[in-house]
Structures are given as structure tokens and as C-alpha cells.
Amino acid sequence: MPITSVSKDTDDLTMVVVAEFPVPVRRLWDAYADPRQLERFWGPVEWPATFSRHDMTPGGESHYVMTGPDGDTSAGYWKFRSVDEGKGFEVEDGFASEPGVPDTQMPSMRMTFAFEETDEGSRVTTTTWFGSLEDLEKLIETGMEEGMTSAMGQMDEVLADLKSYAAGAGTTTQLLDDTHARVSRIVRGTVDQVWSAHTDPELMRRWMLGPDGWVMATCDVATEVGDTYLYEWEQEDGSNRFGFTGELLEVQAPVRCVTNERMIGVEGDGVRNDMTLTPVESGTLVSTVMTFPSRELRDQILSTGMADGMEISYARLEKDVLVPA
């Protein structure tokens, strides 16, 4: 069991949980920074979490839902107050009535996560500050301590799994629920480099092409919230043109942008794409959560081989565009 101590102080209104692991600090940090890893332990064994948003940067947010064995759900959120990469972060932690909507009937807490090296590996100290003694007692009664113990007991297996989360693993697609999917890849480059590659038309035309034999005929980029973008591709002989258009809904350069998107000539609601760039040990994790209007459209789009085309493009980005970090 990685937890070495749990202490509660009713005078300071705090609970402190200390856990140690036989891995470097960077490996432990990345487990919290990467939503694919975080959702494997953030939640008791019988209540696994699914993260629909996780932008680990000051002012960013995380939205998650834990699902119980009978299908019951419990939603929560983090609002990041500060992030010191590799050393620690602070969040407002609370319950949500639905993803991204705080439940005002439940207390929220301030939590800090401090990471440090040890002789055997690394340590994370999680300190929770409660708003009142009533809040502390209420949350302890709900099983908060037992839940954290169960959750962190899963971390050894996650930390040992290097292959699934390393650079070179390729582009992966996860079905989060009936209308959400996450497409992820680690790109060997800095966050600034990868952001530029997604927003600079000249760079985009060099790598965002899918299989060989295609060119990006139109690359009109949206730079401000409310702007419309237009991307079109065609084969080198000018045939089979297709494209996508959409609107920039949110942007926080160089770590996050949210767009809606639809294929040109196709009627109906589009797809919401929430892309987050996160620094990890081997480069930048590009994570895009796609929100579909229906399960049928989700399955239709994913079955086109979209992820395969993205992998070809990202491999080209690494090989032909990015300067080694």
C-alpha cells in the first residue's frame, strides 16, 4: 500500500495524506498530468473516474464523473489555482451536479499536491483544507478517507505501466461514454512548438495531410473566439476535395482550444473538439475530447479510420516539422 500516513487536524481543519512510490518524481507527476492515467486511480476501485476535461494549468479545470457498480454516478471538478511543474499544484476541489457545474449544496475544499524525491523514489503529500469543522466531519462521514486509500492503492499498477503512455505508443482512441471519445498522442516537441504546429497555416500545410498523396488546399485559421475556420484537402492531382469548417469557441494559448466542427456539405449538428496540450517527460501530450450529438455519429466518424490518418500526420509532424526539444 503506497499510503504511509493519514492525519486529520480538527483545529487546522485539514487532512494530510502521504504516499510514496518507487519511481522518479517525473513519472509520478505525469500520472496526475495525463488524464488517461489519472482516471485509472482517481476514484475508489469500485467507482472509476472518467475525465472529460483536464487542463492542468493555472486557471484550468478538470471535470470528471465516477461511476459505481450499479451505474450510479458522482461528478466532481478541480479548478487549478497554481501549477509548479514537477513540484506541486493547488486546486479547488468540489462536487458537481453535472460535469463542469459545481454542486452548491455540497462543500468545496482547497487541496495541494506536493511532490518530492525520496531515497527510494518519490513522495506525494496531499493536503485538504476544509471550510469548517462541519464540512470536515461531513466529508469524512461520506468515506473520503477510505475513498482516497482505495484510489491510491491502484497507483502502483499505473506507474509500472510505462509502455501505454510513452512517446512512440501512437495515436489512441478511448470511448468515454455514448457521446464522448478521447484521441491522444504524445508528440516529441515542446508545448509551444506543438501549439504553433496547430495554429500556423504554413506549418499546418506541411504535416496535417493524412496519407501521402494529399495536399492542404485551404487553411484559413481562426485566431479569436467567434472566428470561423476552413480546412480543405485534395489529392495532388486536384481531385476528391473535402473539408471541415467550424468556430473557435474557447482558447487559452498555448495549452487549450475548443472548437465546433462539421464536414462541408453534411447537414446536422457538428462535433465539439476540446484539445489540451500538456507537457510530459517525453514531449507534449495532445489530448482531444470529442463530443458528438449522438452515439451513431460517434461510431460513424470513428469508423472512418480518423485515428489512423491522425497518426500518419503526427508522425510527419515529428519527422519533418518539429525541431527536437
Rank of each mutant, 00 (worst) to 15 (best):
A160G: 15
V280E: 02
V221N: 09
Q300T: 13
Y229F: 15
E134Y: 07
D192Q: 13
S184C: 12
R188F: 05
N260P: 04
D12F: 09
I186R: 06
T223F: 03
T57M: 09
P99A: 12
H180V: 07
P201Q: 11
C257L: 14
C219A: 05
G76H: 01
L297R: 12
V255S: 13
T284F: 00
V321S: 02
E234Q: 11
I312C: 04
H63F: 10
W207I: 02
W29D: 03
P58G: 07
E224M: 04
M111N: 13
W195D: 05
R81H: 15
M111S: 14
T199L: 08
V124D: 03
G168L: 03
D212C: 05
R188W: 03
F89E: 09
M148H: 12
T14K: 00
D55V: 02
M290I: 11
L136D: 04
F242E: 08
T112Q: 02
E296D: 13
M144K: 04
R27N: 10
T57H: 13
R40S: 03
D55K: 03
E232F: 00
W129S: 07
P293T: 00
R241H: 06
E296Q: 15
T10D: 15
A181E: 02
W42P: 05
D161A: 04
V25E: 09
E157G: 06
Q37S: 12
D269M: 13
D34G: 10
V194E: 00
V194W: 00
T67M: 01
A49M: 02
G59V: 07
F242K: 08
E137D: 14
T118R: 11
V23T: 00
M111W: 06
C257K: 14
T125A: 10
A49T: 04
K319R: 15
G153D: 03
E157Y: 08
S7M: 06
R40H: 05
P293R: 00
S108E: 10
M152Y: 15
L175N: 10
A166N: 09
F115E: 07
T149G: 05
H63L: 09
D237F: 10
P48I: 05
D34Y: 10
D274I: 13
M109E: 05
K8Y: 07
A75D: 05
F244G: 11
V183Q: 15
W29N: 05
R205C: 01
D11M: 02
D227Q: 01
D237R: 12
D237P: 05
E311D: 15
D55M: 03
G76R: 00
L133I: 08
I264F: 04
L175E: 13
F51D: 12
G246D: 00
H63C: 07
D192Y: 06
L297H: 11
M111Q: 13
S62F: 06
K163Q: 14
L162Q: 14
H54I: 06
A315C: 09
G131Q: 06
L136H: 03
T284V: 02
M152R: 14
R316F: 08
M263P: 09
E250W: 06
T50D: 06
A151C: 01
T172I: 08
W42S: 07
G94C: 10
P254F: 01
R206S: 14
D212K: 14
E20G: 01
T112P: 08
M1F: 10
E281I: 03
C219N: 06
V45W: 10
A222V: 02
T288A: 14
V124W: 00
R298C: 10
M310V: 12
D156W: 06
H54P: 10
V321H: 01
